[in-house]
Design a protein around this nucleic acid. Structure first.
Lengths: 253, 253
DNA sequence: AATGAGCATTGCACATGATGCAACGTGGCA
DNA sequence: TGCCACGTTGCATCATGTGCAATGCTCATT
């Protein structure tokens, strides 16, 4: 829609891949160097782009700050966090919180069992849609039609022999998840990792987020992880309750 | 320089503060609503902005992903992290890693204290320049002239009675830090928090980052924190060594 | 139900501001 | 020293972004 802004924004993913010189940027955008220069300067003024000593450009500081602030303004996250910590303390395993946004599922919080929260370790990175337990929970809440369209548009990479192989299997699984109100990933993404996930729902009953507990199966066998399910679901429900308790803007009757 | 891009980018910090409607955005930019709409649409196409159900706009998923990628491309951070973790395991306190970038100092990594008392800081947030130990370390490496200019352009907020009161004191302190190769913040930012920081240097001897250990003085008295100094410096030096060992692109003779 | 207020959205004519060009400056390398 | 590659600047052109006014939409009020 807006050419200048569009071009300017194209620079960001380019720089994300690594430091880039003016010439490369111009070429990538298909514009004259002087144009690229002006765009980069503007990005620079906003702190989104940083010029390192060899005159090449990198993504800049403000970007981190923005992402961080945006993160903190997510209400679910704020409400959920103490619950996640408590769950982590109770069971000792890694706990994730994820949301669905425009065809992507991404982690917005994480409490790790061994190391304290590493802000950017995985948070913000899109999740493998076809196998992750949180993705199954979130996508299973979509209306039938959307689920089908989405499932058919996806790739089904075989991370492991247990990965969901094709759209039909995925849709079947989503239906089951929708029915039972929870999901698992038993070695579908990484051979040795199992997860259980449960939905967090808003006042209107729609799923607004999903949380999961992940364990390496060498430490915790599958049935032992499944024994945690009630605890996970109880935690998710507690968050749901608190979240719908004070709806941010309006009620749904 | 580039008006359209400039306006578009002004939207991001605005949305970072919380969900915002079209009208507000337009007003904030001082442009017509239709203009704001086109900007938001373009931002939306790039995934930087997300439209929530109540039609207000929030920062979007791609921003997290970008920040994530940018973060990973910071070599220092990658190299330093395991050292920070090890230091945290050794002493149990909060460890920070920070860099200097265009007049700002910001945390790029953090390993939380294992004690329940945690200090409030966040990755990506600019640091209080005049008092933080990491800021002193980083700024002390600037050339004399720049240091002076910078120091005189700063505000000197009195967070506590121990905060650096004015430019003269700050410059004096920076000189001392430069000389001794480490810095402290003894209750200058928050009354009850003390820090020690040390520089991480590149192959050419210039400071590329700074790391610090922070402790609440109720848990650790000052002299006990200072006793940690050798360990902190050793860690910083280890990181420096590893960092200069394999320079990413080219050597400096 | 009906009404209206508040908001987002669309099409259009105008001129502002983004663009590419060509000339200039600069630093590194042989 | 001279060359080459790259970043930088000023300027004339017109593509693009802009504000306006009119339309559509959703909700709250009567």
């Amino acid at each position: 829609m807006s050419q200048t802004l569009d071009r300017g924004l194209q620079v960001l993913p380019l720089l994300a891949q690594g430091p880039t010189g003016l010439g490369e940027v111009a070429e990538h955008l298909g514009v004259h160097k002087s144009t690229a220069l002006r765009l980069l300067r503007t990005l620079h003024e906003h702190g989104l782009v940083y010029r390192q000593s060899d005159q090449r450009y990198r993504l800049g500081a403000r970007l981190f700050a923005l992402a961080q602030e945006a993160m903190e303004s997510l209400d679910v996250r704020e409400i959920a966090h103490p619950h996640l910590v408590r769950l982590n303390e109770a069971c000792g395993h890694t706990v994730h919180l994820a949301v669905h946004e425009e065809g992507e599922v991404l982690y917005i919080d994480k409490v790790d069992s061994r190391y304290p929260v590493r802000m950017y370790s995985r948070i913000g990175k899109p999740v493998a849609l076809t196998v992750a337990a949180v993705a199954k929970v979130l996508l299973s809440d979509l209306p039938e039609a959307e689920r089908r369209t989405l499932a058919e548009g996806l790739d089904y990479p075989l991370y492991t022999p247990r990965s969901t192989p094709h759209a039909a299997a995925f849709l079947k699984e989503l239906a089951a998840v929708r029915e039972q109100g929870w999901a698992t990933d038993l070695g579908g993404h990484e051979e040795s990792i199992n997860c259980v996930a449960a939905p967090i729902r808003g006042a209107d009953g729609r799923t607004v987020a999903a949380m999961s507990v992940s364990t390496p199966h060498v430490v915790v066998p599958r049935d032992e992880l499944l024994a945690l399910l009630p605890l996970v679901r109880r935690t998710a429900d507690a968050i749901s309750g608190e979240f719908s308790g004070r709806p941010p803007t309006k009620d749904t009757p």
